[in-house]
Design a binder for these strands. Structure first.
Lengths: 148, 148
DNA sequence: TAAGATTATGTCGCATACGATTTAAATGTC
DNA sequence: GACATTTAAATCGTATGCGACATAATCTTA
């Protein structure tokens, strides 16, 4: 094995995963001032995006969409329930499942959030074509590692 | 304002930042089995990448490279010190600064880590050209938000 | 040079992530 | 139908991230 080449690949500037890690945190920080107005964190915002599209999903169904498990989601969902944005309710057909239903406040928050994507695009300062190309590549990477 | 269009942009599938968030977490999970052999977390590995290139940097100098601050780095560095991989030492020229120096164990870990980039590339299953294109776009995004 | 501003690190609190385990409900199988 | 297996949530412990603040050292500047 070529040790010199291997060491070359240990340099930070040659890492592919580091820019992914740094960019993800950067973008979350860019969201934060916008989300502060709604009193949400970025993962909480993601959960609401899901519920605004599909109200009444179970914990695992939300987790499938966000690639998160109940160990992360349960406490997060309890906090959203505390804030009065949603209600957690045991499914009657399958009592193992907990379904999440938006409250009127949770539903109405969607209107306030409507401006966020455009605002974020403005602050991120990434041209639309590059943003879409980036998204396409990330989606491909994610798709290759879907469970199933 | 076009509310329907704004709502369209609130769909999860139209988010650019969500795949970034999900891919970053995915890749960190892909690293984990490789890093387990070295008893490291991914952020700890990143710190060592920096020190293997530039031993003796201060907390903030590491933070600049990784885009992290002392509130994150100090506890992490203390854990690496506990593991015997590095030593934290007050700078004599400027007693506000703490410099990080690799121990022999910390230095020797580099040889064990040498195989990781290639192993990760294999598991990530992303063709090199796409990986490089992805990195280029992420680097551009990060560059636009450099402090200074 | 003394006092205020700046800088580097550290501490604290909160909210994720996530592996490992637990509990209860539903399902499969004989 | 009893029982082992599987499944959905929840719980626990550890390690980040990060905003806000505290502290000590250095710098500025009047």
């Amino acid at each position: 094995m070529d040790t010199a080449e291997n060491y070359e690949q240990l340099k930070l500037e040659n890492q592919i995963c580091f820019p992914l890690y740094a960019a993800s945190r950067l973008v979350t920080r860019l969201y934060q001032p916008l989300l502060d107005a709604l009193n949400l964190t970025y993962p909480q915002y993601l959960v609401l995006l899901v519920l605004w599209e599909h109200d009444g999903l179970s914990v695992n169904q939300i987790g499938e969409k966000l690639h998160l498990h109940s160990n992360t989601l349960t406490p997060l969902l309890k906090r959203l329930e505390q804030q009065g944005l949603l209600q957690r309710r045991r499914s009657t057909s399958d009592e193992r499942q907990v379904q999440l239903f938006l409250t009127p406040q949770g539903t109405s928050l969607k209107a306030k959030a409507a401006a966020i994507p455009a605002q974020l695009a403005a602050t991120a300062a990434l041209p639309l074509d590059k943003a879409l190309a980036l998204k396409a590549m990330l989606d491909e990477l994610l798709k290759q590692h879907q469970p199933t």
